[in-house]
Simulated scan of single mutants.
Amino acid sequence: MTKKQRYFGNIEKLKTGWRLSVTVGYNENGNPTRVRRMTKTKSAVQREKELMAFIDELENGDYVPPATMTFKQFIENEYIPKQATQQQGIKTREIRNSHFQNHIFPRIGHVQLSKLSTLQMVTFLHDIQQEDVRADEDDKRPLSTSTVCDIFKMVRTALETAKTWGVIKSNPCTGVRLPSERAKAPSYYTPEEIDFIYSKLAKEPLDLQVMICIAICTGCREGELVALERKHLLKDRLAIKFENNIIAPTKLGVQLKESTKNEMTGSVSIPKWLLDMITVYLSDYDDVRDAIQIEEKWASHEFLFYNHFNGKPLRPDSVYQRWIRFLARYKIRHLKFHALRHTSATLLIKENVHLKVIQQRLRHKKHATTADIYSHVLEESDDNAASTFKKPF
Rank of each mutant, 00 (worst) to 15 (best):
I90S: 08
S381E: 15
T118F: 01
G17I: 05
G25M: 14
P313M: 08
L14C: 12
K40W: 13
R325L: 07
S144M: 02
F74C: 01
Y26G: 10
E224P: 11
W298N: 00
Y281D: 00
Q83K: 13
R325S: 12
P191D: 11
H367E: 08
I332C: 06
N262I: 03
K115R: 14
E222G: 15
C217V: 11
I95L: 11
R141P: 09
L234S: 11
F303K: 02
L143M: 12
T123K: 10
S187H: 04
I55V: 13
A84P: 10
S259V: 05
H126R: 07
R37F: 04
P316I: 02
V268S: 08
Q360D: 10
M69T: 02
R107I: 00
R6G: 13
K15M: 12
P186Q: 07
T161D: 00
E296C: 03
H99W: 15
N352K: 15
N102I: 00
F337V: 10
Q86F: 12
H103I: 07
G311M: 09
L335S: 08
G17M: 01
K42I: 06
P179K: 06
D195K: 13
T369Q: 12
M52P: 00
D127N: 01
F303R: 05
E380K: 02
M1P: 05
L113N: 09
K140L: 07
A183C: 04
D236H: 13
V288T: 13
V64H: 13
V319A: 09
I292M: 09
D56E: 15
M154W: 03
Y281W: 03
K203F: 14
K272V: 15
T174M: 10
I80K: 01
N307Q: 13
T250V: 13
I90D: 09
S114G: 01
C220R: 13
